[in-house]
Every structure is written in C-alpha cells, then in structure tokens.
Design a protein around this nucleic acid. Structure first.
Lengths: 108, 108
DNA sequence: AGCCTGTTTCGATGTTCGTCAACATAGACG
DNA sequence: CGTCTATGTTGACGAACATCGAAACAGGCT
C-alpha cells in the first residue's frame, strides 16, 4: 500500500510531497545512492557496513549516510555480534516504483 | 534505454551514481516534487507556469525550481506566445521506474 | 508605450557534506 | 575481571551548497 498515488495521476498535496520528497532526497546523493545499491544488490539482501565502506569517503561519513537512509525509511539495520547489517526496508522499492509508473507506458 | 541498471542488480559506479543522484535530488524537494507531479498529471501532458504556480512560494521561486528540474533532465520547456509550457522529458519516468524495479517483486 | 508572463540577479538565511576526535559495543586472550 | 583490538556510531566544526524573495530584466501581445 503505497504512500502516494503515481506522480502522473494528480498533483500531490503538500503533506504527500513532504513525505515522498524525503525519500527521493535520501537517494539524491551519489554516496548514499551507491550505498543503497550496494545493500539492495547484496547477496542475501543484506550487507555488513564493513563490506560497503569503499565508496571514497571516510568510515564515519558512511555511517552518517547510512543513518540518513535509515531515517528516510529506506534501510533497516541490525547488529549481529561485532557487525552491523543493513537491508532494504521491504516494500520501499515497489512503492517508489509505483510512484513513477505511468498508467499506460508507451501510449501518450 | 535507461541510464543505469536497477539498483538491485549491482552497486552503481561513481559516475552512474553521480548522474542518477542528480535526478533523485531534483525530486527531493517538496516544492519541486509538487511541480513535477503537476506537470506530469496535466491534461495533454503539459502545463503552463501560470497554472502550477500555487504551491506556496513566490513566482520567481517557482521559476527557480522549474529550472532545476529542467537541468536535471526531468522537464523540458517551450515558449508559445505569452506563456511558457513545461512537459515531462519523454522516457524519464520509465527510466527511473526501471531503476527501482526489483527483478522479482514479491518473492524474497 | 503599457501590460502581462517568466526569467535572472543578488543577498540573506539556512541546510548539507565530510572529517577528526571521542565514545559505545563486542569478542579475544591472559 | 581487565585490557587490548576491531567495528560502528555520535558530536562538533568549517566549507560548500541550497532555498527564498525583492527587484531588475527580457519577451510578447494589444
């Protein structure tokens, strides 16, 4: 059950835009987008921080970005022993895809 | 022909992330997102600036945001007489939808 | 000219990004 | 237990960037 109707259906309300923009904003940084795709494409659907820290910035910066992705509702984290694993919040990809889906793809 | 593989396929390269993040970033502002949805949902696929200026900010600010959406490759504009019309850059919605599409939706 | 629609320039205010240092948590080892 | 080492998180700071509106500007119609 997505948060908002497709962008092509009608103009979003201010509240809808606020919520939805927060997600797009989280993916609107190259480092965060790479981190997200690293988690999303990881085998088993999850990735340890130590496995995805090679994105060109320092490790604390990675942690800051992961926190933002978490606050945006895109990732969830779980500590297992020494390591912290991140995975994609279920349903998020489908919800965002739904937002961008045109009702009739190659028509208009 | 999308710019990048789905986010679930593999970790994006730095260049791919740079290009793609620019689009998400453009939609990562509530005002811009509303403007974009206003254009995307407009009858005929296009909207005059004067029709979508009621988003709670001044008209110059609307112009600023429309410019950013244009620079991000999400909108195109055309002047016809007194008015300027904006429409969604063809293929953009499908390309971004493709990015977020999981290979097997409700499986994992 | 006068009017209308949009854009651009400019400056003030606020936000984001990246790093260093300090802290928290978990395991290993004596 | 105490200490050491490894993995992540948090706080604080400066530099860079984004947002917004008032005013000035540009293009088109009558």
């Amino acid at each position: 059950m997505p948060c908002c109707p497709p962008l092509t259906e009608r103009m979003l309300t201010a509240e809808e835009a606020e919520r939805t923009a927060a997600m797009f904003k989280a993916l609107g940084d190259p480092v965060r987008l790479r981190l997200f795709s690293a988690v999303a494409s990881a085998p088993g659907g999850e990735a340890c921080v130590c496995d995805i820290s090679d994105v060109g910035v320092s490790q604390p910066t990675v942690s800051h970005h992961l926190k933002k992705l978490k606050e945006a509702g895109l990732l969830v984290s779980e500590r297992r022993g020494t390591w912290v694993y991140y995975r994609v919040e279920p349903g998020v990809l489908a919800a965002m895809g739904h937002l961008l889906m045109a009702p009739v793809p190659t028509d208009r």
